[in-house]
């Protein structure tokens, strides 16, 4: 088990290295520069700026210097937000994004899981059809629509929550629901599918033949196998929930990390963009590792080798 984790961590580092290298190259090859503006900047100023960020050196030297800095944990300076380091920006914005993400995740798992399980147990009844229709709506309605709708209802019509901004726990609720609903819908559908497959299996018939109550059959015998597809989905889902949604954070005007993804790309803010990519990649890789470990705990047939 420990050996398995160690081996996978080495893999994570290698993958991360490849991701950093490719992103670095792609970002630099893309036309445009952080200093291109509508009005031309004097040549001397431009040279000075380039020197400040080390862009005057050949690309391979910049690359090795960047890798060296990343290993030391230094993600460089932001170009757009001058005099702020990328580390600082991420340190301030990521926790806010993660707060929203965490609540969204709890909401998504709770609603998706219970909804999906009920739909599976009551397959082809009005419960099933109702819940799956709601799930279908959940998948089809993106935060771009659900966000303003939630504000309209729960901030303006019923003044329970603030429309936007940051400060109290109340600011987190609406963005979390908006962000989590799509995931809740996916989880509900996956749970239903997984549970249905298990409920039809022979060992569930055995459990019924033993005289277990329907509740015990579902909770004790069907749930573990039924959630496996959900666990697989959760790895990448948690990663993208945790680094935030551009749309949700723009709509609710949350000072999170999501908008930096897009802004940094538009502004050619090389180091900030790289920093955001690295954070996302680390989340994704570690959570996938976590999913594989979780699999081993849920399904005893899986061995860590």
């Amino acid at each position: 088990m420990l050996f398995f984790i160690a081996k996978r961590l080495v893999g994570v580092v290698i993958t991360l290295f490849v991701i950093i290298t490719l992103s670095f190259l792609i970002i630099r090859i893309t036309p445009g520069s952080p200093f291109s503006q509508e009005r031309d900047v004097p040549v001397e100023v431009l040279e000075a700026l380039k020197a400040k960020y080390g862009f005057d050196k050949p690309l391979h030297k910049q690359y090795f210097q960047y890798i060296g800095n990343v290993v030391k944990g230094d993600l460089g300076l932001s170009i757009k937000y001058s005099n702020r380091t990328v580390n600082e920006i991420i340190k301030i914005s990521l926790p806010k994004t993660m707060q929203i993400g965490f609540l969204a995740l709890i909401w998504a798992i709770l609603v998706g899981f219970v909804g999906g399980a009920i739909a599976a147990v009551k397959q082809n009844t009005k419960w099933d059809y109702g819940l799956m229709s709601i799930a279908m709506c959940g998948i089809s309605i993106p935060p771009l629509v659900s966000g303003p709708l939630l504000i309209l209802v729960f901030a303006l019509a019923l003044p329970w929550f603030p429309t936007s901004g940051w400060g109290s726990w109340k600011h987190v609720v609406l963005p979390s629901i908006s962000l989590g609903s799509v995931y809740a819908a996916y989880i509900a559908r996956l749970t239903r599918g997984g549970m249905l497959e298990v409920i039809r299996s022979n060992y569930i018939r055995t459990a019924r033949a033993k005289g277990l109550s329907e509740k015990a059959v579902v909770v004790k015998h069907a749930l573990k196998g039924g959630i496996l597809p959900v666990v697989t989905f959760l790895g990448p889902a948690v990663a993208s929930i945790m680094v935030g949604s551009v749309v949700v954070e723009k709509i609710f005007n949350t000072p999170g990390m999501g908008p930096y993804f897009v802004d940094a790309a538009f502004n050619r803010d090389y180091f900030l963009l790289m920093g955001v990519v690295i954070v996302y990649a680390v989340f994704l890789l570690l959570l996938n590792l976590l999913v594989d470990i979780a699999y081993g705990f849920i399904d005893p047939r899986i061995r860590f080798e």
Partner: peptide, 26 residues
């Protein structure tokens, strides 16, 4: 409910395929 009290208690059943009739997770 009355039937569950009989199943596995007074009437038991064994199935054709022992590979899939036991719960792999327990």
């Amino acid at each position: 409910k009355q039937m569950s009290k009989i199943r596995g208690n007074q009437i038991s059943m064994i199935f054709q395929d022992p590979m899939s009739s036991l719960n792999p997770f327990l």
